[in-house]
């Protein structure tokens, strides 16, 4: 036994006050993170929020500027080699070799991790089979579609069956059908007992896959909880109403408030009001109440919350306008740097 061995049952990932500073900004600014064994933990945030930087620090790809990180109780800075043996990493950066075929790639990564040639070959074939890539086994990667490429990336991370997998934006840029297939693959991984830490820009992806979600913005964790907890903090959906007459606005707002107990957001110039719903069928309650008060509606839609809305609710600014001046006193993110510069 080595002296780095940990007390049994330590979390898969445990990070305190992680900081990464680049030339002109703090890409990760004091993030705490605990991922329990066997769970799927989602890190949700817009482009440039610091998700990938954080993952790279945990994966020994970037030096940790401040704070500490442990993988299964092993200090990342002290024993990077041990951490690398516990990890499989898949992301746009850690990909496969484009000059090799799929089976050659798996052979390469198997051999590099100490599998004897025969075992490397059989393991490679099993993975190709599991990921539906058998027919493409001997094709050059350049002929692969985006989805096949991602599946091969993932397969290459699984050769030694690491207990912890990092998936950095596993479906960004994939079409909806391929994304669904990828989700199925990830769920199967978890059934095999893997712990998964995934980053994503999509709320629905975190919703579909993750047991718990941390929302990261400008290098800071702004919220953490289950998907339901996060969504209820935003309202699950929004009822958007446009009234026939702007004179009805105050009355309609009162009705909505009396039904749902929450003030709607009004846009009087457009005769529009947005009402946050806990459940979609609450829309019906509001509509019936409005009809009873003879308040005429010109149009209505029910919208699911987008990542933008979760962000608006959690941080007071939306995902596309990182430089938007903060008008929300609860916005604890003080750093107004342009997020495009973060990588």
């Amino acid at each position: 036994m080595n002296n780095h061995s940990s007390p049994t049952g330590s979390p898969a990932v445990e990070a305190h006050g992680l900081v990464k500073e680049f030339a002109d900004m703090r890409a990760v600014d004091g993030v705490d993170l605990t991922v329990q064994r066997g769970e799927v933990f989602g890190v949700l945030g817009p482009n440039g929020a610091g998700k990938t930087t954080m993952l790279k620090m945990l994966a020994t790809l970037l030096p940790i500027d401040a704070g500490e990180a442990r993988i299964f109780g092993t200090d990342v800075r002290e024993h990077p080699h041990v951490v690398r043996q516990l990890l499989g990493v898949t992301g746009q950066y850690a990909s496969v070799d484009e000059n090799l075929t799929a089976s050659e790639n798996l052979m390469l990564f198997g051999r590099l991790q100490g599998l004897p040639r025969a075992r490397a070959r059989t393991t490679g074939l099993e993975l190709l089979d599991q990921f539906g890539l058998m027919e493409a086994a001997d094709k050059p990667i350049s002929q692969f579609s985006g989805g096949m490429r991602r599946r091969l990336d993932l397969a290459a991370s699984l050769i030694t069956r690491p207990p912890l997998i990092f998936l950095d934006e596993p479906t960004t840029g994939l079409d909806p059908r391929t994304r669904g297939e990828m989700w199925t693959t990830i769920r199967e991984l978890v059934r095999d007992g893997c712990t998964v830490l995934l980053t994503t820009q999509y709320l629905d992806e975190a919703d579909q896959l993750a047991d718990r979600i941390a929302v990261i913005d400008r290098g800071v964790k702004v919220a953490e909880g289950t998907s339901d907890e996060l969504k209820s903090s935003v309202g699950r959906s929004t009822l958007q109403l446009q009234l026939v007459s702007s004179d009805d606005m105050p009355a309609a707002a009162r009705v909505a408030e009396s039904v749902l107990g929450e003030q709607p957001v009004l846009t009087p110039e457009a005769r529009r009001m947005n009402i946050a719903l806990q459940r979609s069928d609450q829309a019906v309650d509001v509509l019936i109440a409005l009809r009873e008060q003879h308040l005429a509606i010109e149009s209505m839609t029910v919208q699911k919350p987008s990542l933008d809305e979760v962000f608006l609710a959690l941080t007071g600014h939306d995902t596309s306008e990182p430089d938007h001046p903060s008008d929300d006193p609860q916005d604890d993110v003080a750093d107004p740097h342009n997020l495009e510069t973060v990588r």
Partner: peptide, 23 residues
């Protein structure tokens, strides 16, 4: 640790006994 449902083995330490350097 009570919330874990899927992990088949939460007590074994996967980091134990792994080499710290490449031979």
């Amino acid at each position: 640790m009570t919330t874990i449902s899927r992990s088949p083995d939460v007590t074994a330490d996967p980091a134990a006994g792994l080499p710290t350097h490449v031979s």
